[in-house]
């Protein structure tokens, strides 16, 4: 399946995918993020989607699984966040020195970003897509992409300042 077929077969499913995501996540913003992420993933593998007899079924299964993963991850994150601050304080001096390395810090922060923000920031800042192009890929409004991009960039900056000061 080429990227043209992605636009023809997958993008029209956007409303349906959003509906499924809303039903599972019970949150409009989260559902929109989930759809963006799944569509970006499908766009990434658009050249190999032809292997599946029914790409629409793949997209539907993907959104369901993704939403369920999000719910599970949320539960896990709330547990991890309780321990994160303690973890930073208790690091040995060697680890704290390692953190001083700015490259390491940036990589660590980016890896900790939510997957959708990671994908958008990578498309924008590494692969040099314009916001409008990313919006076209996900069938969403540029403003929706901009919001996630802004969130990701601000988080990277704030966490960098916090970690490099340690």
């Amino acid at each position: 399946m080429s990227q043209n077929t992605y636009e023809k077969d997958i993008l029209p499913l956007r409303t349906q995918l959003l509906h499924t995501a809303r039903k599972i996540l019970e949150d409009d913003q989260e559902a929109e993020d989930a759809v963006q992420e799944v569509l970006l993933k499908l766009w990434r593998i658009s050249n190999s989607l032809h292997r599946y007899a029914n790409p629409a079924a793949v997209a539907n299964t993907a959104i369901k699984n993704h939403c369920l993963d999000r719910i599970r991850q949320k539960k896990r994150e709330s547990l991890v966040n309780d321990y994160r601050d303690v973890d930073v304080q208790n690091d040995n001096p060697h680890l704290q020195l390692e953190r001083k390395d700015s490259e390491e810090i940036v990589i660590r922060i980016i890896n900790e970003l939510p997957k959708l923000q990671q994908m958008i920031i990578t498309l924008k800042d590494v692969e040099r897509y314009e916001v409008e192009e990313i919006a076209q890929i996900t069938g969403s409004k540029p403003e929706a992409i901009r919001v996630n991009l802004a969130r990701a960039r601000k988080t990277v900056r704030e966490r960098y300042i916090k970690l490099s000061a340690l």
Binding site: S102, E103, I105, V106, I107, I110, T122, D125, V126, V156, R157, Y160, I161, S164
Partner: peptide, 13 residues
């Protein structure tokens, strides 16, 4: 400093 490190990282990638 933060922007320098971030942009450097993107540049490398």
């Amino acid at each position: 400093d933060a922007e320098k490190a971030i942009f450097e990282h993107w540049g490398q990638l």
